[in-house]
Design a protein around this nucleic acid. Sequence first.
DNA 1: TTGTAGGCGTTATCAA
DNA 2: TTGATAACGCCTACAA
Lengths: 342, 342
Amino acid sequence: MNKLPTIKEIAKRLNVSVSTVSRALRDHPSIGLVTTMRVQKVAKEIGYEVNRSAIHFKERKTYSIGVVLPSLSEPFFSAALTGVEDAAEANNYNVIIGQSLENFEREKRIVENMKDHRVDGILVSLTKETSTYDHFDNLKKYNIPVVFFDRVPNKRDINFVSCNLHSGMLQAISKLVSMGHKRIGLINGPAKLAATRQRLQIYASCLKENQLVLEQDIIVSTDLSKAGNLKAIHKLIALDESPTAVIVFNDYVLLDCIAAVKAAGLKVNSDISFVSFANLPIWEYMDSLPLASIEQFAYRQSSMAAEFLFKLINNAAIPGATELPPLQHIIDSEMVLYHSAK
Amino acid sequence: MNKLPTIKEIAKRLNVSVSTVSRALRDHPSIGLVTTMRVQKVAKEIGYEVNRSAIHFKERKTYSIGVVLPSLSEPFFSAALTGVEDAAEANNYNVIIGQSLENFEREKRIVENMKDHRVDGILVSLTKETSTYDHFDNLKKYNIPVVFFDRVPNKRDINFVSCNLHSGMLQAISKLVSMGHKRIGLINGPAKLAATRQRLQIYASCLKENQLVLEQDIIVSTDLSKAGNLKAIHKLIALDESPTAVIVFNDYVLLDCIAAVKAAGLKVNSDISFVSFANLPIWEYMDSLPLASIEQFAYRQSSMAAEFLFKLINNAAIPGATELPPLQHIIDSEMVLYHSAK
DNA sequence: TTGTAGGCGTTATCAA
DNA sequence: TTGATAACGCCTACAA
């Protein structure tokens, strides 16, 4: 347990006071040039480095932020994390990671743990299960700012960056209509999810904007399990008059749908076309892929959220500073068209 | 900037000393039951929570470990991270993440930064570019233990968990031979990579163990770029006598190979079979997939590495403890056979 | 059973 | 230009 050198050590060697050393190390103008040089020389010799824990303690800051997100196995979130890392590096911050794995209790534990570690701020993308936000509200007491991204609470007075699916979906449905599609179905998620209500609403409005009527029989839902996905798509292809195109809750659901469709002897993009959400990088290598994906800009969302978080943190450090207006930014999604002719 | 309650505050309220409070809060036996109760009651009332930064500072520990890995967009590493997180949670530790993105300089910066933050230990899976290890050796000075996993340095006196590709490759090649394959090619990586030399050596020995001779014309290499991948596979299928099976450097290379093979009008798993490394979860959904993957147990490797790291950390905290023997554990890989009849 | 005092490493304030 | 000292929050050896 040999201790690392401290300014005290340097002070002793040079027979000066610790305050002189402290100042000399940071080139404080009040310290004479000779002294400064001597101090810095010795510091280098004995391999002195400032003990950040001491500073953190003194400044009541840890120079680390927490990131809570569902799962890094989703390319969307690993891209998002890269955005956070980049912003953190630019601000000299560390990133503490926590995967909630879509588990509400785990999310709570992670947040609690980050709070205990006194992170200076937290970025969050919610679990699918999350519908109460006490564990985040609680952070106010500790002056830990929170910025949400992508999966954000349905709640006022929060900071967030999210993505407006309407723009992308409208582009997609318009494209489908221009290609002659008239019956465009929807495979939605479980009713309890906010994302589900959102998808339905946007779907309805996009149909309307294209002068199509909403038909209940081509709207089905899945519980996001493989079985649920298969059941949903089978319901659609079993219809007397199946939809010729389907908007699918997300890419993972779509993978199962494509398998089912092919097993049923149908051809993707000719018998039935798909549009989905997420933009898996792997589509590039698949034989059957959606006509289009709705790009939601993971990196952009997360880095924007991170940058605002740092603004909040830095602003709080200024004594008399006025509070920043909340960030409530919504990025427009965009349709990404794939070459369906592979 | 309203400060959080401290033990001092509690002490003042109850007219006892801070040491009494400190002890009472941790149920120290020397403190009377009444006092203990009174202290804990007030603590609860004013919402006291211990300031970990102060403890960290005092104990010269941060209760966080760093994880440096190439890229979380690879499912292998995101699985590995989950292993680390689970081990960290069990040990009441935080995980600071750093993606090196296969960039040596970035790896160095991350390690430097983690050192500055005085993490209690570091887990590393190296960049493909990394061939010098000074930035890790340097950590000894700060008593920061390092454990490597999967992509480990070629060096003695380090702690690591890695995966022995031989076992899996032998299973795969034996399987291929049992299916009648006699010409089994290899698409290897760039020469400068340790993994490349390793693949070649294992490939050679597995052929030998199956009484096959090494044929240079069916050994090609790629620089891992898309163009390189395509060039490599084209070289093989352009041969007068093409191999009927090919061992491929990794799944990402294989994706390009499969595309090329299909474009050339060949059928995967009948005209040509593949075996690859990584075990992408997505294969399940692909039309053309390798005959088998070599499973390398990301979660198992990383959690084993993490657990040992915590042992090191805890051991170092015991004053007179003898140093632990280094961990140099090698897990056997395993062939995972896919149902090629989809 | 409880209190006092010192220390962890650094910086800021005030004094010299 | 430099030094002494207090403070950050907590713990602990020693004293009472």
